[in-house]
Structures are given as C-alpha cells and as structure tokens.
Design a protein around this nucleic acid. Structure first.
Lengths: 328, 328
DNA sequence: GCGTCACCTGACAACGTTGTCAAGATCCAT
DNA sequence: ATGGATCTTGACAACGTTGTCAGGTGACGC
C-alpha cells in the first residue's frame, strides 16, 4: 500500500480511501491511485484490515460432524449460499463426533476471530459442555446451534421435531397392526437418536403396546452392520414385523437385507434421501427440510451478528411422513 | 495480551513466549503467565499473529462448484481431513459454475492470505482464464487445480481419465452389439463433459460405427429433464438401444424412465453413486476414486506450501467399469 | 579475576491497515 | 471582508502479535 501511495504521489490514507471507496477523494487522484493499484498488482490485506477495525472478519465458522455426509453437505451449501449474499466466507470444520476435537476446533475458529459460529454439537455419552464458549460469546462472537442443542450454554438453537416425527411414524405402524417393531440406531449418545427413540416409545406407550428392549439395537454404525442386525432379528423366533431405522445410513442396509430376503416387513425410516423413490422396497420416511434448518440457523446467526441482543430462542422445525420406495 | 502481561508482572514478549511455548522461560514465570491467561480468558489472536509473521495463516481455500453435490462434498471432506492433520483450516467457496464469481471468490481468498488454493475451475463456454492468479502465485500462494485444468496458467493439476473411461465404456457397449447409442450431457461447456463425449466418439470411430449427432443431447440439467429426453428418444422411430449418461444426476432420471417403461436398453453411466447397487435397473458405471483425487491434490498443495518449487505436474487418475443395479 | 557460554528477560519496531484529528482549500451567505 | 459549512488531504497512532537485539544473570574453566 505504501508503494501504491508513493507511485500515485499521495498518502497512505488516500489509497485506503480509494480502495474502500470512501467519500471525499478527488476523481483525478482516485484515478491515479487506481492506476498504481493496477500496475503494482496491489491487493488489500484482509487480515490487517480486520485486525485494525476490530470486528468484521466477514467470516463465519461452521462446525459439523462430517462434511462428506449429504445431510451436513446440504447444511454447508445452504449456509455458504446465505453467507455469500453478505460477502462472508465460510470456514468448515468437522468434529467427527469427538467432543474434544470439537472444542479444539471451536477455540481455533474463535482465535481466527470469526464473526459467528454455526455449531452442530458432537454427540457424546456424557453430553457436551459448551460453557467454554460463554467467554467468546460475551466477547462478541455470535453462536447458533443447529440439529442438536448445546450443553450448559444458553444460545439460539434450531432443531428438528425428532421426537414428534418418530412418534407419528410409529403411531402409523401401530395403527397398521404392528406390535413387534425393531428399532435400529447408530449411537444412543447422540441427542437426535435419543429423541427419536423416545418418540417411538411414546407411541408404543400410548397404544399400550408392550415394550421389548431386545428389539432395540444400538451401535449400528453402517449399512453392513444394519444388514446383519436385520438378518439376526428376522431369524429369531417371533421376529419383528416392522423395522424403524433411525438414520439413513442404517436404512440402506435394512433395505438391502429386506429386499434380498423378499421380506414383507414394514419399514419406517428417519431421514429422506434422494434415491428413496427408486429403492426396491416400500418404506415410509420421516422427512424434513434440511435446507430450512440451515437457512433458519444461518439467518438467526446473521441477525445476531447484526446486533440483535434479544433473548435466545429455540426453533423446532416439523417433520413429515412420506411414502417412498418401489412396490415391486 | 497486555493485560495478561500486567497481571503476571512480565513483559509482553514473555507472554508471547509462553503461549507459543518458546524455550528460555523460567517455569515459575510461565506458571504465572498461564494463570493470568486462564483468569483473564485470554485467547491469542490468530489474525494479528499471521499478520506479523507474514506467512502461514494455517488456512487453505477450496473453490468448488457446489458444496451440496456429493462429489464436491467428498472432495471437501478429504481436503478438510488432510488439512486438519496439519492444523490448517479450510475455507470453502462455491462458484456455481460462474467464472466471474469464481474470480471474485479467488481474489477474496487471496486477500485473506490463504496459504494455498484448491480449485475446480468453473466450466464456461469460453474457457476460463486463470492468468490473474499468476501474480498471486508469484507472491507466494500455492495453487493446485483438480478435476478440470486451469485456463492460461501453468500449475499442478489432478484430473480423472474422463476420455479413457468413456472410451472403455462405449467400447463395451459396441462389443455387445450396440450401434445406436444416445449420449446425454449436462453442458458441453464443461471440460469433463467434452472429454467424456470425445472418449465416446473415439470408441465409435475406432469401431467404425456411424455417428448420429441427433443422439447426442446437451443441456440435460436435472433428473427430470433426463427422463423427458429418454422418453423422447425412445418414442422416435429407430430408437437408441443404449444410453450413455455423462453424469450421475442425469443417470437418476434415465434409470427412472427406463425402469418405468420396462425398457431393455443398455445403460452406461459416468460417476458411481452410493445407492447404485440398489437401483432397479442394471447399468455399468464408470467409477473412479474421488477421495484419491482430492487426496492427491491436497497433498500436492501442501508439498508446494512446504516449499517444493519443482516443475508443475499433471496427474491423471484411472477410471474403472463396474456393473451396478438390480436385474429384476 | 576474566572471558566465554548458556540461559533468561524486556524494549522496541514492524506486519498492513484504518480511525481520529487537524489543517488547508473552496464556496456561499452575510 | 468575515464566518461558517463543506470538501479534501495527510500525519499519526493504534489493532495484537512476534522478530530482533541488547542486556542481565549465573556457571564454568583457566
């Protein structure tokens, strides 16, 4: 910048004014400055700029579990889109469900002085503790949680109606006459899984269906494991007549095994997925609007960044039952 | 930091030494400093730090077309993973196939003084011009291109063997006796599409199959459009006996329409996808290792960041034909 | 007693910006 | 002419760090 100033024969401050198109610069001088900028290939250093001005790095951080997962990819895409409308860059970090790593990444993001943070808390058996963020929040970093609530911190939160959705879905299974419903889940440590399981139990209790906890299988981490669990459950005496899969990775494995066996068990699955229509087994999915989840959270975040100091709010978005799959 | 220094009764520099655990600090002083850090909730300002030290923002930029697309999400996830091993953050930006936006985003990333840039160039009919990056490269920002080559710039590039893969696939169709092969593509402006189409033509030419350009359909932007194009082609006299879909979004629409009609046309498709095994129509996919693509590019980038000044290289990764889908 | 060396500490400037302020120029209405 | 308002410019300090350098202490060998 000093070089530009020298070349244009003006002061540093005038160059600064021109590159920020501030008022009160003679057109002729501005032109000289712009020429010098072009010749020298000058580019404003965003770091120095936001260091000086204290706030406004025009960057927000997004902390999710895993970028490659379509759910989080959709969230990231939506957040990036809204951020771009405000010329804000998005730093994405993955915690891989590890609370320690989550904390480290959040601290690092704060050290980079992001304007705000969108956080999907890492699931953990002990429950996450986000109280370390309080200092940052007071220091001016806005934080919004999505998909899962924070631990030990009051902040804006956007959730899905996991419990209500699961309840509705299982109600339908019960209404269709199912009494033995197997539930497959990834990890009971994760908030959304607990909620969905609770919703299923709500529906069973209200219908007076006895609860058989041998039908609930935790720790189903991937499609292959899901397939094995389905096989095992179907091979036992008095097998389940319906399956409830609590996430879409599990759903894939369940479908494959049910299709392979030509089973006629009912299938209820949390999470819609793009190819659900083309899958060779009929199922009911509990769908929701992932983009709306991300949009709500990101807009809430920007409202905070813009200075909204009102009381933190929690938004819960609805789910919907949708029939999917091919009836071959 | 000044507050910490005051509280611990030491100089700024000593605090700096402690928080960077530099040598030559008395344990007792270090302890006092750490106590002050904890009490005051001090957090090092990464911006100021990298401003001072000139280089090393510990941040890289990734420019892709669209985060929500699973292909790019996989790339982003892989890049983030490798970056994290080096305590580097990842800024992700989407160009949405718009070269002007791409240029603006790349300039912005450079202004943020990222250590390096991973770029999937935006496809455009006119071909992209990345010469504006030359100044940045000379100024010290490393750049690696992936999936598509840069325009007017010599830089490391990691590509897939689009042409070879398409050639192999179409060779197989021809070997099975197909003579009328329809090709559906998104946009001929995109490098990968041109290469794949060229590969298909290579195979036809070498087999002496006459080329009917009414069977090549450009501008197929989404699954619904693909379905309509398939319907139209099959309804005309002398319909194609095989379809070649040049990307996976098109493939979904083609499958749906072929399945709906109970067609027996052969289907060849570029890009594998997770549910390909469960789709109700047999197809051959041209698969490749997306993670390897991203890994190669990211490792190349870090080698450059670490000071590798050797001649820019271009890496081409192989593709593979895989049978997918259910034969109902 | 003196030089050498390793260890420890702090003053100061610098990184590249921009906010603050003061001062000069110009214009208009009194 | 005079006062005031508006426009235009630049000197300077500051943002929060860290590299450089100079200086201090103590131990050791001669």
């Amino acid at each position: 910048m000093a070089d530009v100033a020298a070349r244009a024969g003006v002061s540093l401050k005038t160059v600064s004014r021109v590159v920020n198109d501030a008022p009160y610069v003679q057109p002729e001088l501005a032109e000289r400055v712009l020429a010098a900028v072009a010749e020298l290939g000058f580019r404003r250093n965003h770091l120095a700029s936001s260091l000086r001005s204290g706030q406004a790095t025009a960057t927000i951080g997004l902390l999710i579990e895993e970028i490659a997962n379509p759910f989080y990819a959709t969230i990231a895409g939506t957040a990036a889109e809204i951020a771009r409308q405000r010329d804000t860059m998005l730093i994405i970090a993955s915690s891989e469900e590890d609370p320690a790593r989550e904390q480290q990444l959040l601290r690092d993001l704060c050290a980079r002085r992001v304007d705000g943070l969108l956080v999907v808390p890492a699931g953990s058996p002990t429950g996450c503790d986000h109280s370390f963020l309080r200092a940052e929040v007071e220091l001016g970093t806005s934080v919004v949680f999505l998909d899962r609530p924070p631990g030990n911190l009051r902040a804006d939160t956007v959730l899905l109606d996991n419990r209500g959705g699961a309840r509705e879905g299982v109600r339908r299974l019960v209404a269709e006459g199912h009494r033995r419903i197997a539930v497959l889940l990834d990890s009971i440590g994760v908030y959304t899984m607990r909620e969905r399981l609770d919703g299923a139990q709500d529906a069973l209790v209200e219908a007076g269906v006895p609860y058989d906890d041998r039908l609930v299988r935790d720790g189903v981490r991937d499609p292959a494991a899901a397939g094995r669990v389905v096989a095992e459950l179907l091979d036992q005496p008095d097998p389940p007549t319906a399956f409830f899969s609590l996430n879409n990775r599990i759903t894939l494995g369940v479908i494959e095994e049910l299709y392979r066996r030509g089973s006629d068990a009912a299938l209820l699955a949390f999470d819609d997925f793009e190819l659900a229509r083309l899958v060779p087994y009929p199922l009911t999915v509990i769908a929701y609007d992932t983009r709306a989840l991300a949009r709500t959270a990101t807009e809430l975040l920007f409202r905070r960044i813009d200075g909204d100091r009102s009381w933190p709010r929690t938004v819960v978005l609805p789910t919907e039952l949708v029939a999917r799959g091919l009836r071959l």
